[in-house]
Nucleic acid binder design. Structure first.
Lengths: 418, 418
DNA sequence: AAACTTTTTATATTTTTTTACAAAAGATTA
DNA sequence: TAATCTTTTGTAAAAAAATATAAAAAGTTT
């Protein structure tokens, strides 16, 4: 393992051929992690090299003790090929899912199995002191996990906000006052590992692309609805970040003429009528204006801090008012999605997040709005589905991203040297 | 030249090495056309091959008589490198720009110079008989041009409408009744050449990407305003087509609640308030309701068939009413663009088409709307500029696309064989 | 004009890919 | 169950390409 990784300075002394071989080995490791096992022939095709060379590379990883060949792949009628896999528990990623009020930490290995995980209360909205708090939580978690820190390659962090994916700077949360240190640099120094920070919706989109409904698809939109609403754009099989990584801010696209004031400072953003916040506001207004509803059974304090899932549960019990506000929210969202379909021409739209749990109470009005506001030719091929990924998808997606970027960075170092 | 092109059947008899060399030569020709000249070192880098191999390939094209080395490239302080170029007038593309009421035909060579061009009146809206008419016009044009038909590699055709970029089928115009033959197949059979059909806005976007303001840029939106309004999406340096090639239909995104009926069948599409059609309608309504304006000097017949450029000219003469309707149109368009900025996070938005000639009368209200409806972080990096491409950009862009796809197809044939 | 660059050209050495063939491991069929 | 396919794996010799190196050529700068 030690021979496979390196510091930039060490590269200079190596010949072009040594660098090339190192590059091949890294590309092979990256592919083995991403695909979780490949046959000889698949490696040949993937690296565009001959069979003898492929064997040489695979044997060298086997001799280094990080590759095993215990399984067989599937054949179409002859001898079954051997499956080359990296040994599990060889490399790890520390995955961190930062939400508004808590943080989930997970250590994932190269075979996508969980080594250790935990969840802590956390407040994202406290500026730079949140960063210090996050640092403390992570240190404790790592100590408690008992992981061999040398085997952890990198940290992958997802969080809400406008995140520049080049420098990992979050322009919405945990901004440093003096603006000199980014969270990415800060944690990278603290933990002496590369840190990759990515927007939560984009991370979810990649999880869908690798493990979910978007697998094998080309043009997909992933929409996450929780308190806010976000969009992950997949075009030509890749997540598209936009010029500074701020793509997909659909929550703040202009939607209602002279609408409600949004926390972003503008009026009538889509998020003011289609989001968890909007749903809670509608519920509150309805109760206070004396609508007949199961929601009236809530206490004043409960009403004040009402959460979307309360409305969804009421709807599932048949409450007409809850159903009606879910329907209104869905119709607005559907009109927004109609705009997206016109622009992106997707083959699939995946709905995720907590509000998606409202199921047909939200999907039916969405589909209706799409039928009303989309051109037939575009609407006909755009299916809408609810995400089927479980709670562990976030960590798996993050691990995937972090592994990929980690190897990409090393490979780029080699190729820029030569 | 004959040795460089081939039919699929001929490939089987060739050894893997012969195929590889043929592939390299095709990739080299493609790059030489695209870049219009490359140095040895650039070829090395581009094909990822060594200097000796590069020289061998270049010499073989020189011996085939299609490559010349008359110029010198630029150096950063030493001997100037030779520039390898394909000889001009070696390969040609027949470029066809189909508009609603006319067709422009141009023969462009590999050095991007015009061999012959012409323009004819043409009616796109007559179903399949338009296709027959187009066939006749093209045949006459080719005969009149006196071109050596063997040197024409392919036809590149741009036209409005929903075009599936895989099979070249236009779902809006020139649809065949029985649905069996596409325009692409029909013309391909008639002229015995590959035919590439592309949406007019997408073609313009590629022209901007290769020769215009979008050169060297990563994330750009190209908006064309004529009678209608269209969008070409460039993300990560490539045009993005969407699942079926229908991306960028911004003209028909829902915009006005209970708005005017659009010709697409829906109500309140953006095109009903921001397009040449909308501008003409507003002008007509204004005159008929007796607004004070230079436009009142027009005769009844002129008013009935008023075109956007009339309004623009009036505005340029200082006509307040013309300026006000341009301003209203611009504000609506600007709000639409604000939505795009939120979704795509572009670094540049290029405005083209005839209405863009209204210059600051349209750009100022657009910019104002963007400032009102966009988040600061997204708005700050998104510049809006008017296209600087001339009238010949259409043909050049088409030639670029057709050359690229022609070579790509041959290269794919080789690689799928082996 | 001399010294210094960068680019081109050429060639020996090393590495990789082809090609061809044989053997092994399963799947299919008689 | 044996025989016959297929597919995959492994290996060795021949061919091709990449690397490393040197030297010549063509510019620039001092």
């Amino acid at each position: 393992m030690s021979a496979l990784f390196f510091r930039k300075e060490q590269l200079e002394s190596k010949s072009k051929i040594e660098k090339k071989n190192l590059g091949f080995k890294l590309k092979l490791m990256k592919a083995l992690v991403a695909e979780n096992g490949m046959t000889n022939a698949a490696v040949c095709r993937h690296l565009s090299i001959s069979a003898p060379k492929t064997l040489e590379l695979i044997n060298s990883l086997a001799q280094a003790g990080i590759l095993e060949q215990n399984e067989k792949g599937s054949s179409i009628g002859g001898r079954k090929p051997v499956l080359n896999k990296l040994k599990s528990n060889t490399f790890f990623i520390l995955c961190v899912e930062v939400e508004l009020f808590r943080v989930k930490m997970t250590i994932v290995d190269n075979a996508n199995t969980f080594f250790h995980s935990a969840s802590s209360p956390f407040f994202l909205t406290k500026g730079w002191s949140s960063a210090n708090e996050l640092n403390r939580l992570l240190s404790d978690f790592v100590k408690a996990s008992g992981i061999d820190w040398d085997c952890v390659l990198a940290l992958g962090i997802s969080m809400p906000g406008l995140i520049n994916h080049h420098d990992g700077r979050n322009h919405t949360y945990m901004a440093n006052q003096d603006g000199h240190v980014s969270l990415q640099d800060y944690l990278s120094q603290q933990f002496r590992k590369p840190v990759f920070i990515i927007n939560d919706v984009k991370s979810a989109a990649i999880a869908e692309l690798k493990f979910g409904l978007a697998k094998e698809k080309k043009d997909v939109l992933v929409i996450l609805m929780d308190w806010g609403i976000g969009l992950g754009i997949i075009m030509d099989r890749q997540l598209r970040n936009g010029a500074t990584g701020f793509s997909g801010e659909m929550g703040h696209m202009p939607f209602v003429e002279n609408g409600t004031l949004c926390y972003c400072g503008k009026k009538g953003c889509l998020e003011t009528v289609a989001s968890g916040v909007a749903l809670a506001r509608l519920a509150k207004e309805g109760i206070q204006s004396g609508k007949e509803s199961l929601l009236n059974e809530l206490s004043d304090a409960e009403i004040e801090s009402i959460e979307p899932h309360v409305v969804i549960e009421a709807a599932n019990k048949g409450d007409q008012y809850a159903i009606s506000i879910l329907s209104a929210t869905g119709e607005s969202l559907g009109k927004g999605i109609a705009t997206l379909i016109q622009l992106f021409n997707p083959e699939l739209i995946i709905l995720g997040g907590k509000i998606a749990e409202a199921n047909q109470y939200i999907t039916v009005p969405i589909q209706q709005a799409i039928n009303t506001y989309c051109m037939t030719q575009l609407r006909d091929i755009a299916r809408v589905e609810l995400s089927r990924l479980g709670a562990d998808a976030g960590a798996k997606g993050l691990a995937h991203i972090a592994f990929e970027r980690y190897f990409d960075r090393l490979i780029a170092d080699i190729e820029s040297e030569g």
